[in-house]
């Protein structure tokens, strides 16, 4: 599938956000093309999660403009619902619904939100579980499968809405080392299929291999925005060098 890379699917213009007095996002601007994979990294507390959570409005912003897939994010409830149908999200802590089976977790939203027939929703869910490599776990509960499997269910759950954009907030940080790869592999496959993705992660191997661009965050601002090649070999900013030396050198 060839991907048209000339459609601006996310536009972020001078976005500011405060938590009380605390200025978390301090004028963030960037744009993303359809089919692009962007990795966001930066020190803890720099506002990475806050930034991607404004894209599906789990957090609101107080100044600036965010346009996702042609829709501007305001407090208008209908806009928010439309955006959430278009944007899937995967969380650090998986956040699966523990009282529902794996299959129900995945087929829930297609059934209730997209109003698919139950049999159709389940068929979609089974296909997605196949795609993330765990068709045999369909009838188990989240508490009965491993962390890596849970995170793959979470990816399938997000994909079930056929989103145009996928957000990942440190999807592998809560996983044991031997499970990280299975999740990253699924994400890699997804990137290759042409999905537009924003990934907050410290997995620099993944960033190097998969990302089209890397955005480096610090103190609520974008310090550097670069191709992986440039980012790792000739970073422009001292702050980036320091960060890279910290996470690559131990």
């Amino acid at each position: 599938m060839s991907v048209a890379k000339n459609e601006e699917i996310i536009i972020y213009r001078d976005v500011h956000k405060w938590y009380g007095d605390f200025h978390v996002l301090r004028g963030v601007s960037f744009t993303m093309q359809k089919g692009e994979v962007v990795v966001i990294c930066g020190p803890s507390g720099s506002g990475k999660s806050t930034c991607i959570r404004t894209i599906n409005r789990l957090e609101d912003h107080q100044k600036g403009q965010i346009i996702v897939d042609g829709i501007e994010l305001t407090n208008d409830l209908r806009n928010i619902e439309a955006i959430r149908r278009d944007v899937g999200m995967v969380f650090q802590q998986f956040n699966l619904f523990p009282h529902l089976t794996v299959l129900q977790n995945v087929s829930l939203a297609p059934f209730w939100v997209l109003k698919m027939k139950k049999s159709k929703a389940e068929e979609v869910a089974r296909q997605l579980l196949e795609r993330v490599g765990i068709p045999e776990q369909a009838d188990k509960y989240p508490g009965q499968i491993s962390g890596g499997q849970q995170q793959r269910v979470a990816i399938a759950r997000a994909l079930a809405m056929s989103p145009r954009i996928m957000l990942f907030d440190e999807p592998t940080s809560a996983l044991d080392p031997e499970m990280i790869k299975e999740v990253l592999d699924v994400m890699k496959e997804l990137a290759q299929s042409g999905m537009t993705m924003i990934v907050v992660t410290h997995e620099m191997g993944f960033a190097r291999e998969v990302a089209d661009r890397i955005i480096f965050f610090d103190y609520g601002q974008i310090v550097e925005e670069n191709t992986p090649e440039e980012f790792f070999h000739s970073p422009k900013h001292e702050r980036t060098k320091l960060f890279l030396s910290q996470i690559l050198d131990y």
Binding site: L58, R84, G88, F91, N95, F97, L108, A158
Partner: peptide, 21 residues
Amino acid sequence: PKGQYEAASAVGLNKLLTTTL
């Protein structure tokens, strides 16, 4: 946990569905 509300919103469930389901 808050994550349950967030996950429900993220897949597009509205408030009523999030609460009941």
